[in-house]
């Protein structure tokens, strides 16, 4: 099998999610034989990749590839795929991948199984992904190759990638036939957060299970009695019940407190990436199948609206 992996460049650094996915490519090669090629649009990154076990590294250069610009990225990848005709093309499931790879899939009429969490290498290959917000896992197969895959961050460990030595094939590319209709501006950050949750020892985090804004005072009281800070999942911020800096997750803060208490939240991957480094995780949820329980050190299947007031009482006495 010929496998092509795209390595994403974030300000001249290798995106760790795309690098981890190299492990997936190497595993397929080890079992099914073949070649693993890497492609990147940055020479610095291409040179760093030479220490991994790869059959060849391709690096494309053009000023339109210096910063992320989807239509140029798609065109460069289209050329690459036509040239080496891979059976599988692999990406990390990053925000950039979300933006350009579905479009690449449609252009080439190659199906794209996005946000996979693993592969099963049997007689045929099975691709594992989550459905229903992590409540169900499913295996998928394909009736023919080529195929595009992306892997969720954390699906593979970068320290298990086999080293080797490989060569870079660096070349210029021209884009005479690209009509660019997408014009990105500079990146920026919104106002700095007022509370630095990354320093908190105890975080009391609430999700949609809190039900209504009127229930927030008891959460604040609990956090205060524990000497902790209040945080939340995205829907609480989307509803305007808490300021954005309270949000934990891929589009919020990343924290690793001594104690993270998850109250009425399902444990969606975009939330969990922001707190999975916590030392102790306590999950209270009324649905015994909530995905968050997979991460819990201590778990309670129950109603937070009943348990929070009792915790406040115990802390008072």
């Amino acid at each position: 099998m010929k496998i092509l992996i795209y390595i994403e460049d974030n300000d001249n650094k290798i995106n760790s999610n795309s690098l981890e996915s190299l492990k997936a490519a190497q595993e397929i090669k080890a079992n099914k034989s073949g070649q693993v090629y890497a492609v990147t649009f940055n020479d610095i990154i291409a040179n760093e990749l030479t220490r991994y076990d790869l059959d060849k590294i391709y690096s494309f250069k053009n000023s339109n590839l210096d910063d992320y610009s989807p239509l140029f990225f798609i065109k460069a990848m289209e050329n690459m795929i036509e040239e080496i005709k891979p059976d599988i093309i692999i990406f990390g499931h990053t925000y950039q991948t979300r933006d350009w790879v579905p479009r690449l899939s449609a252009r080439l009429d190659i199906p794209f199984i996005s946000d996979c969490t693993g592969i099963k290498i049997e007689d045929d290959l099975k691709f594992v992904r989550q459905l229903y917000q992590g409540k169900v896992t499913a295996d998928f197969t394909v009736s023919s190759f080529p195929l595009i895959l992306s892997f969720q961050s954390g699906s593979f460990r970068a320290d298990q990638i086999s080293n080797g030595s490989s060569e870079v094939n660096s070349s210029n590319i021209d884009f005479n036939d690209v009509v660019n209709t997408i014009h990105p501006d500079e990146k920026f950050q919104e106002s700095e957060s007022e509370v630095d949750l990354t320093q908190a020892d105890i975080i009391v985090s609430i999700g949609r299970g809190i039900g209504k804004e009127d229930n927030l005072p008891m959460v604040n009281e609990l956090a205060e009695k524990l000497g902790g800070n209040v945080a939340s999942s995205r829907p609480i911020v989307d509803s305007g019940w808490l300021e954005p800096y309270h949000q934990i997750g891929s589009s919020g803060q990343t924290v690793s407190p001594k104690l993270y208490i998850a109250l009425g939240m399902s444990g969606a991957i975009q939330h969990v990436v922001g707190m999975k480094g916590s030392q102790n995780i306590v999950v209270i949820n009324k649905d015994s199948n909530a995905p968050f329980f997979e991460l819990a050190d201590y778990a309670v299947v129950g109603d937070i609206l009943e348990i929070i007031p009792k915790m406040i009482e115990v802390l008072d006495s």
Partner: peptide, 15 residues
């Protein structure tokens, strides 16, 4: 479709 669902299951707990 070229992508086919093979099987669904409830995730295994490892921790």
């Amino acid at each position: 479709s070229k992508v086919n669902l093979d099987k669904m299951y409830i995730p295994q707990k490892s921790k």
